[in-house]
Design a protein around this nucleic acid. Structure first.
Lengths: 379, 379
DNA sequence: TTTATTTTTTTACTTAGTAAATAAATACGT
DNA sequence: ACGTATTTATTTACTAAGTAAAAAAATAAA
């Protein structure tokens, strides 16, 4: 089990986030906590309204019938905000990560403008979702940039042109809520762990395929930030020292070959007119060799990088989140094949590779999961 | 602090392993444990003889003088065994990782032979070190191969031609000691963390430069084994799919270019007659272009792999252990330069790169540290 | 000598859990 | 229809591991 979720209380919540509905005896079984403690803890949570008992049809089994418990989604709500150079997206979710309302705020230049816009939209958001302010437990913020999450500060964001912005305090004060901030890749990993496809994995890597390429790791069941908060910069491993200039200032970074921004530019340079990556994939299928080459090179390059990662970290799962609309096609196939061709046989069977199409609310929902994580583990 | 060292008892030991001698108030400060607990814990340990009070000259400060505490090295001894295709090395160490006696056992074919030889040499070892059997708390075993450390089994070792050998039970029974086993790279990392240069690091990677290339990570202050126990296989990342055949069955693995075995073979193929890597380095300094090229290519290739690792995991330190006698020269320089030239500026200042010459007892001492870790954290 | 200061210990209490006995609620066999 | 087996949940009595705050100990300086 996750070392951070080792208390009876947290283990109970974690188990119910994973399994939806469980009886007390199942909870004891799963968490390894004694039945006595489960009784005590669940009583407490029932009183708080965080848990509810379900009155299920009898199963026809012998013995005292078990009573199923589940989390009461309406007990707690969380605000999630993702801030990027395109727009600021804002959602409110329930305890289980369901989005109840959303707002899109056009790009704001300054932190103050973002804060003001967020404050204004918060009321609308709550009204749309029909949620009482009192049940909102916190706000999570995902920023495209380098974040010190302990201090709640965005250290640097090229996309937003921010430096040392105490965004967590700004927004926390504005909404009168506890606030946490992280970079978007970390937020995504937390979201997948709590609400998404990675709930069962103790060790996994989440890769975000967007304009750039981000990643984050769960290790020992916890988010691994690295020494400096810099873990997951796989987008900037050097593939070709003489390659194209990356916005990071170096040359030939992985994302200059496989990032959405770079692919778009490369397509344009080839005279291909595309709106999104789907178009490029369609062209490739139609036999356009340029499109095909771009996608295959991108996939093979990324796949090789992931193969390194598999050897180094041996994750149970690599979870790709596709924010660019590649969908299933040349790119994903190239990624998967390159990984499979470049890892030791012992890793072939034990490394899951999953691709997901990101829904529009993905990032802000992930941001909300940070607040959910912090709130729930503090109970 | 290390989550595994969160109890007052373990935190106390950890602090004293790091800082040698500390007063109770300093211990409270460092560990974050209340003075009351420190008193209680240290009393307990003093009774057991694990700690001793030092009567230091007065410092001339005001107030009640503090009493320094330190670990009593002679309280506990550990046996360390490293098993490879060359020889089985055996040491006994004290609580602080000092080697008190050592034995070299010629290569044994079968697990049974190893066990018998180990049993025979154990008595000699204890006599040489003048240690009472009763103070030996356990034995750690480092195996060149794939190990399931939970089960105490060597899953597979090409070098030893072993498959599913319950080596921990065999040796544990033979020596009548609690026994633990791990692969040699993991053992080395544990050794560096407990007894070596990595005591202060929560997140670091240890790279073993030997006949092959192994590595292991500490993350969140604990050894990270990966999903399958396969983390750290950096020696087998594919550098050149058309490269030389690796003993793992694939082509162009990193260690076919930068491993000691491969370098020796390559040198021979170039007509260079060398005894060890030191000779190759000397040839390079003397202007031999072949030697120079081999070492530079090897260093650059390894360095590039490490640069990937830095981006992916952002360790605080990369600790190279040189088992081949390169010492300072072309190889290390190439490694360091390639790393520095291929990582983001933000990592340049925050990633320590250390090279260490492995003394002869390095591996068995590392093995002993596994037993020390297990024993001390169980107190 | 008295007082201030610093370190350590003691006391009384809290928190978070457990094992084992007990109670509750059902199905089954006769 | 009724006792019995069975399974689930709760209660009781206890333990382990810590804490805060008061007290004690041991010194230097006034």
């Amino acid at each position: 089990m996750n070392p951070y979720l080792r208390s009876a209380r947290s283990a109970t919540i974690a188990a119910l986030l994973q399994h939806e509905r469980l009886s007390r005896s199942e909870l004891a079984e799963i968490t390894g906590v004694s039945p006595a403690s489960i009784t005590e803890v669940s009583q407490n949570f029932l009183q708080q309204g965080l848990l509810v008992e379900l009155l299920l049809p009898q199963t026809g089994k012998r013995g005292r019938p078990s009573v199923q418990l589940r989390l009461q989604s309406s007990h707690s709500y969380f605000v999630g905000i993702s801030i990027s150079e395109v727009a600021t997206l804002m959602v409110v979710t329930d305890l289980q990560g369901h989005i109840l309302a959303r707002q899109t705020i056009p790009f704001c230049k300054t932190p103050a403008e973002v804060t003001a816009a967020v404050r204004k939209n918060y009321t609308t958001l709550l009204r749309d979702a029909a949620i009482p302010r009192s049940r909102v437990r916190g706000v999570g913020i995902a920023v495209a940039g380098i974040v010190n999450s302990d201090l709640g500060i965005c250290r640097y964001s090229a996309a937003l042109n921010w430096r040392d912005v105490p965004i967590s305090e700004l927004i926390g004060t504005a909404l009168k809520l506890p606030a946490w901030v992280d970079n978007d890749a970390n937020a995504a990993a937390v979201g997948e762990k709590f609400f998404g496809r990675a709930r069962d994995y103790l060790n996994f890597t989440s890769i975000i395929l967007g304009r750039s390429i981000g990643s984050a790791h769960y290790m020992h069941g916890m988010l691994y930030r690295g020494h400096d908060g810099g873990a997951g910069e796989i987008g900037h491993i050097t593939i070709d020292p003489k390659g194209a200039l990356c916005h990071c200032g170096r040359n030939g970074c992985l994302e200059t070959i496989a990032g959405g921004f770079a692919l778009r530019a490369a397509a344009k340079a080839c005279g291909l007119s595309i709106n999104g990556m789907r178009d490029l994939e369609v062209l490739a299928v139609q036999g356009n060799t340029e499109a095909s080459r771009l996608l295959r090179t991108a996939g093979a390059t990324l796949g090789a990088g992931i193969a390194y990662l598999v050897h180094i970290n041996n994750p149970q799962c690599i979870l790709f989140t596709d924010m660019e609309g590649f969908e299933n096609g040349v790119f994903r196939t190239a990624i998967r094949q390159t990984i499979e061709n470049n890892i030791l046989p012992r890793f072939l069977g034990s490394t899951q590779i999953l691709f997901m199409d990101a829904e529009p609310g993905f990032l802000p929902r992930s941001a909300a999961s940070i607040a959910a994580f912090e709130y729930l583990t503090s109970l």
